[in-house]
């Protein structure tokens, strides 16, 4: 979960830990539903994505107001050995588009599996994939890329 969360969080390790904690909390509360789920892995992926969406809604466009200056997270800037170009490219993507990339290109899920994980239609997965790749190419230089299990 932590590995996937780090990718969904575009390299923000602190946010990734928060996402995992939020997802595990949801799983605990909904344990009966989780046990009945046909696809436990998809359920967990969905929980992570929902946690990311919740976090984005809470943070708001201009960030959360806080009583004290927050400790500077080193992952909001460039840290040693982090692929800054990749981080910037991923952060330019909306969360759902980022999730499509992670599930299709890293976890190598096919369109149907990705649609199940994101609770959307296969058509949406395909269009999100295409748009994500266009945005990525604007930030990264890599050869023509096809996801595994492309339909």
């Amino acid at each position: 979960m932590l590995y996937t969360a780090r990718l969904l969080a575009a390299g923000d390790a602190f946010l990734a830990e928060d996402l995992v904690q939020a997802a595990l909390t949801k799983l605990y509360i909904s344990w009966a539903s989780f046990r009945r789920a046909d696809n436990a892995a998809a359920y967990v992926r969905r929980a992570l994505v929902n946690a990311l969406m919740d976090e984005r809604r809470r943070a708001g466009r201009f960030g959360r107001p806080v009583a004290e200056l927050p400790e500077r997270s080193t992952t909001t800037a460039v840290i040693n050995d982090i692929d800054a170009e990749l981080v910037a490219a991923l952060r330019a993507l909306p969360p759902r588009m980022r999730a499509v990339l992670v599930f299709r290109f890293v976890h190598e899920l096919d369109v149907a599996q990705t649609a199940e994980a994101l609770r959307c239609s296969p058509g949406t997965v395909k269009s999100q994939t295409a748009r994500a790749l266009v945005k990525l190419r604007a930030h990264l230089s890599f050869p023509q890329l096809e996801p595994q299990g492309a339909q």
Binding site: Y3, T4, G11, D83, V87, P143
Partner: peptide
């Protein structure tokens, strides 16, 4: 694994 996937895998890091 192509360059993009390798970069993503490195970003995900290892879980100790």
């Amino acid at each position: 694994m192509n360059d993009f996937r390798a970069r993503m895998d490195r970003l995900g890091g290892t879980v100790e």
